[in-house]
Amino acid sequence: MSNLERRYRSLLRVLPRWYRADREEEMVGIFLADRTDELDLEHSWPGWGETAAILGLAVRTHLAAGAALSSVPAKVVWRGEVVRALGVLGLLLGVFYATAAVVDVVAGDPGEPAPGWWRVLELGPLVAFGVLLSGRRTLAKVAAGAPVVLSLVALAQPEYALAWSVFQLPSLVTFACLCLGFHREAPAPPARRLLWWGGGAVLLGVLGGVATGAGVLAAGLVTVVVRGVAFVRGDVVLGRALSLFAALQLVPLLLLAFVGGDVVSAGLGVLLVFAVVWPLRRRPKTAPQAN
């Protein structure tokens, strides 16, 4: 085996084992086709473009984009579905906050003074949700990333770094899930069903804009209720995604409750703990439909 072949095989280790078992020999054959020069075979390395394409394929296969392939293990299909669901839940939370911000402005309660571009970037999740449903994934990721960029501004002041980590990491995790889960080959999100979800998030956002504490509490309550519905219906993907989502939101809430003595946060925290620990139904034997 030449050095070049060894390097290509090392690169392919980023792919899941089940995928390599099926495709590695075939792929190595393409990498090394027409490469007969001894010096080339001993001293060359995989190019940057090829490496990036394999890393992209690794994301797609680890998150089960090729779910209809016969050899995809059920747990990989679950993982992909849960990551996409978690990404959508993060976006729905963004829709909730963006709507509340709009209601604040319309109601004449500007809150903290903010420049115009800040207000525009805050609307990112609303735009992202709409364009995701219309199938424009890249644009959705750019729009969803706007508030994340906005939050990075806080890092310009190092004393806020710890607070930023606590309060922004949940959003960053769900944003990463959105980016990784909805790649080019991923199945399309169910637009009709998600429209209802988006409508619910907007309604809660209106409530949140009118009465901040009540809106946040209602959002927590809805999370717990939907978690319960998922349990009853045996929707393990949604149940798992909601558990992770609630666990992510718990971190800043617990800090607010115990350090700041915030009663609303404490109440919401209790609700979310309930959502996290609520048992999932046992997995059925068949994997969920990927498309």
């Binding site: 792929m27 393409i30 473009g49 394999i54 394929l57 296969t61 090729g66 209809a68 080959e185 990927a290």
Partner: peptide, 17 residues
């Protein structure tokens, strides 16, 4: 086509029948 891109496309084509 990079190899990683080719197999992404092929996977999707096979998945979609």
């Amino acid at each position: 086509l990079r190899v990683g891109t080719l197999y992404g496309v092929l996977d999707r084509l096979v998945a979609d029948g």
